[in-house]
Design a protein around this nucleic acid. Structure first.
Length: 286
DNA sequence: AAAATGACCAACCGCGCTCCG
DNA sequence: ACGGAGCGCGGTTGGTCATTT
């Protein structure tokens, strides 16, 4: 996808963890202009990163609507089920988990679910032909689940959830006996409603279920509660948000909660992008 | 209390695909 | 039709924090 305006800045790209300042710059830029051509984003946003890194950071961490909490029993079951069907098709699995990224699903699988499935006898692992899955069964890195963990897995011979997180009012950490993260997680819809009190009626009590505790920077999104009001036009704001997965996530998210907001929300997001919104051609911006 | 080990997760890397000129 | 550029995806790595010895 060539981009006419793409230039090739000869800058040495920074690597490693993102600083809050970098996050701020990237978020500011994308909320204001959309990402457009990723390769130009770093230069325009004043970042010494490559476009790929910016894209990843946005998708996996900064994008509004990310849940970033512990997986609910439902989500966990979905991951296990879909992984059995799809294998390591993380992006496809993530499509069914509104607010989750492929990277998050992948990490969750590798750090937690994989062990669980193995412990359960690998009955769900047969469908995955991947090297990763093989390593679960064969590699020396395969770890035995500690007895302590085993004790914490009631009903571990079924696919019943390991008593997880949200629905049980227990997140993964507390499940593991550690501390709760300190801050409430705010979904984009919740955040939107804060900025638009008139939308509040659109959120029913199910929204509470989505208000997990999370320590990450989604809380920062509060800062942007005003960007729509005194910031750029909706047109500017929506550049780059016409992403199918983005809309799809919200759509799914609220459909799951028997809410009608999903469509309305996507309409809202795509109000000036008819034809291109919620579609895949988010590059045709500049 | 300090060192060793384990677990988690953010980020990087490389490959394949698609689009455009 | 072909080559280059950009994007998306999956695998892997490396840093950090927690737990154990």
């Amino acid at each position: 996808m060539g981009c006419k305006t793409c230039e090739k800045p000869k800058v040495s790209h920074r690597k490693g963890l993102w600083s809050p300042d970098e996050d701020q710059k990237l978020r500011d830029y994308i909320l204001k202009h959309g990402h457009g051509c990723w390769s130009t984003v770093p230069a325009k946003a004043g970042l010494q990163r490559n476009g790929k890194s910016c894209r990843l950071r946005w998708i996996n961490y900064l994008r509004p609507g990310l849940k970033r909490g512990f997986f609910s029993a439902e989500e966990e079951a979905t991951v296990i089920k879909l992984h059995a069907i799809l294998g390591n098709k993380w992006s496809q699995i993530a499509m069914h988990l509104p607010g989750r990224t492929d990277n998050e699903v992948k990490n969750y699988w590798n750090s937690y679910l994989k062990k669980k499935v193995v412990k359960l006898g690998g009955s769900n692992s047969h469908a995955s032909p991947t090297k990763s899955q093989d390593s679960v069964n064969q590699s020396p890195e395969t770890r035995q689940i500690p007895e302590e963990e085993n004790k914490q897995i009631p009903g571990s011979d079924s696919l019943e959830p390991l008593e997880p997180p949200m629905q049980s009012s227990m997140d993964h950490d507390s499940f593991k006996g550690t501390l709760l993260p300190p801050f409430p997680k705010v979904l984009f819809a919740d955040w939107l409603s804060m900025d638009h009190p008139t939308n509040q009626s659109l959120l029913n009590s199910d929204a509470e279920m989505n208000c997990q505790w999370d320590s990450n920077s989604n809380a920062d999104l509060f800062k942007y509660g005003s960007f729509q009001a005194d910031g750029p036009s909706s047109s500017d704001f929506l550049h780059g948000f016409g992403d199918s997965s983005f809309c799809g996530e919200f759509q799914l998210q609220f459909e799951h909660g028997d809410q009608l907001l999903g469509g309305a929300f996507c309409n809202y997001l795509s109000m000036d992008e008819n034809g291109g919104s919620c579609g895949t051609n988010h590059d045709a911006i500049y």
